[in-house]
């Protein structure tokens, strides 16, 4: 009985950590798309850049704190690079360019030496792990760290979005030509929004790498981007609390079906059930887009206001 309870407690910690990491990841996406209207279909790229940068620097002896900060910074720099096409491109082109960027990045990571190729990297140092705690205790401590950093990112982006700065970002989302006609130089805002969102995703990536204890290119497939989109649109775009709600619902559903996806049901093998679960994710996305594109927390008036 106590074994079962311990298992549940451990499971709860992993559930909450995963969900919180995704909240953080989505907070970055929400700044880019929800607030500024920049369609980023390659968000996972920034997760990967943050993870690999932090881990590789750590492996080469850089202290974890600096390695993590570098992960954030390098992600943000790539965000700036990718923002340049974003300045000129329409939504659909931007979606294609970002998705392409993420796929190309993964191809590169998969094929160069210093990232460990398809095997990835493992056995690197992880924060708080050298305190002499057991794995369970570390899990909860690490969760506390993730929650604290996520809360910080959450609060900072909230502050920015509610400020005059955020007002400019929202105006860019609504009608960037009018924003210019009213005297705003929007170029810097678009670049900054993309870079900040990428930096937040980079932080999520570094933390994710620490949590997993091993990373490889498989962790950064396109599906991760779309999970983030589902979480964002489930809760309602442009709202950080929507990301929290979306992540809880998504991971709730995910966990509820995890048992079957891992062991299979009757004659149906586990990998096929895992595929079936992704079918369900796809259908969920479609149904949401048809019937409630504004998400759960979205205002009714949002409907039909999108251009």
């Amino acid at each position: 009985m106590s074994g079962l309870l311990a298992g549940l407690v451990a499971y709860l910690a992993s559930f909450l950590t995963n969900a919180t990491l995704y909240v953080l990841f989505v907070v970055g996406l929400n700044l880019q798309y929800g607030t500024t209207g920049l369609v980023n279909f390659g968000h996972v790229a920034f997760l990967a850049i943050g993870a690999y940068t932090a881990v590789l620097l750590g492996v080469h002896g850089v202290p974890i704190l600096f390695a993590t900060a570098a992960g954030v910074a390098v992600s943000a720099v790539f965000g700036v690079l990718l923002a340049f096409p974003a300045l000129r491109l329409r939504d659909d082109y931007l979606a294609i360019v970002t998705i392409g960027f993420a796929e190309v990045l993964r191809t590169v990571v998969n094929n160069v030496q210093f990232t460990g190729g398809p095997q990835g990297i493992y056995g690197y140092a992880v924060p708080l792990r050298d305190l002499g705690l057991g794995y369970q205790a570390w899990q909860w401590l690490f969760l506390a760290l993730v929650v604290a950093l996520t809360a910080l990112a959450f609060a900072l982006t909230e502050y920015v979005v509610r400020s005059p700065y955020g007002r400019v970002l929202k105006a860019i989302r609504e009608d960037q030509e009018v924003a210019v006609a009213l005297g705003k130089n929007i170029v810097g805002y678009k670049v900054a929004s993309f870079a900040l969102g990428a930096g937040v995703a980079g932080l999520a990536g570094a933390l994710l790498a620490y949590y997993y204890g091993a990373i490889n290119p498989h962790n950064f497939e396109a599906i991760v981007t779309f999970e983030a989109w589902i979480i964002m649109v489930l809760g309602g775009t442009g709202r950080n609390w929507g990301a929290v709600l979306g992540a809880l619902i998504y991971f709730g559903l995910y966990s509820a079906t995890a048992r079957y996806a891992m062991s299979g049901v009757g004659a149906i093998a586990a990998d096929r059930l895992a595929a079936l679960r992704i079918v369900a994710i796809g259908v969920l996305l479609v149904v949401l887009m048809i019937y409630r594109p504004q998400g759960i927390l979205g205002r009714k008036e949002d409907l039909g206001l999108e251009r």
Binding site: P164, Y165, L182, G183, K184, A192, E306
Partner: peptide, 28 residues
């Protein structure tokens, strides 16, 4: 007319004011 549809009327107006220090991250 081209109003910022998903911003409040007040936000539409406040956005247009010139020289706002809060439009810079450093000042924020």
């Amino acid at each position: 007319t081209r109003v910022f549809a998903r911003m409040t009327v007040l936000e539409n107006l406040m956005f247009a004011a010139p020289g706002q220090p809060g439009e810079s991250l450093a000042e924020l």
